[in-house]
Nucleic acid binder design. Structure first.
Lengths: 163, 163
DNA sequence: TTCCATGCAAACTATTTGCAGGGCC
DNA sequence: GGCCCTGCAAATAGTTTGCATGGAA
């Protein structure tokens, strides 16, 4: 279920930076991998890790997430709910962090892994002389499910009016 | 210095939503307008407003910023420093929130008011069936000043090596 | 032994809330 | 009078830090 090769790679990255992959850190990484698109907060990661490693402390989770952020294995993201959320970069996604679709009705967060910004980044570099290293892009709007749901509600209301 | 017509418009928006433009609220709006690209935190807004309205409370600033957010006059933004920052939407920028360039070296935040995402949004709507209402886009990298600075440092180091 | 890493608890910081008072319609 | 708004202080919530302990090299 979890990509062991990726865990190994992360272990190597930690070692190279002078950190060890302790059982707590490994359990944290595994939880993140098992919820790759979960956009988990520190607390949520903590609760998940606790299932496999019950006596881990919340502070350790915070410290691990901080290390993973430093190593650019995860990115901090925020969807304006007051929490920092931790989002795993995909293996190999060195220069292209994925994009998000945030539904303002149901709150669901979808991911887009296609690189949509290549041309825009070239333009920014040329026009604003800004050297782009990374980006964060979130679209806010209505997901397909909520659009359908709204259409149905609207149709039902029209029907009722007619009767 | 401050666009009075815009203040009036905001006043009208508040009224329409059932709020009053009290002196405290007006002072807060004016401070935001005077620092349109300042990406101020609540605390920073508070300190600025205090200059003109010394006995305003921090809670009032928070409450005002919350109202302005609801009315889509400001947007909350976050640059991963743990603070919520409040960014004035431009008058008329109903459907297009501006973009940000965040320099990872000096921390400066630049704004881009050109709409760069029109085509990308069409693509998202067609391909992902997501109805885009708004977006948040931040590029992270090196601003022109820091690039120049780095080149100079590098050149000086090379020069020193030669001598 | 040395050094990193841990869990716990305390500290800290940003933000929110409760409440009594005050002003305006 | 009723209602919204305010300032203050207290409460809350997320995150960070200090410290004594423990384990691996």
């Amino acid at each position: 279920m979890v990509d062991q090769a990726y865990v190994k790679k992360i272990k190597a990255q930690l070692h190279q930076a002078g950190f060890k992959l302790t059982p707590q850190r490994e359990a944290t990484v595994v939880s993140l991998l098992q919820n790759e698109t979960g956009h988990l907060s520190a607390e949520e990661v903590y609760l998940l890790v606790k299932e496999s490693t019950p006596d881990i402390g919340l502070a350790t989770v915070y410290r691990t997430l901080e290390i993973l952020t430093e190593l650019n294995i995860v990115n901090k993201v925020s969807f304006n709910d007051g929490l920092i959320r931790y989002d795993l970069r995909r293996e190999g996604a060195q220069h292209h962090f994925h994009h998000h679709l945030q539904c303002m009705q149901c709150g669901k967060i979808q991911e887009i892994h296609e690189d949509l910004l290549h041309d825009v980044e070239r333009l920014v570099e040329q026009q604003y002389h800004f050297e782009v290293q990374d980006h964060k892009l979130t679209f806010q709007g209505l997901c397909a499910d909520c659009q359908r749901h709204n259409r149905e509600v609207k149709a039902a209301a029209a029907q009722e009016k007619k009767e």
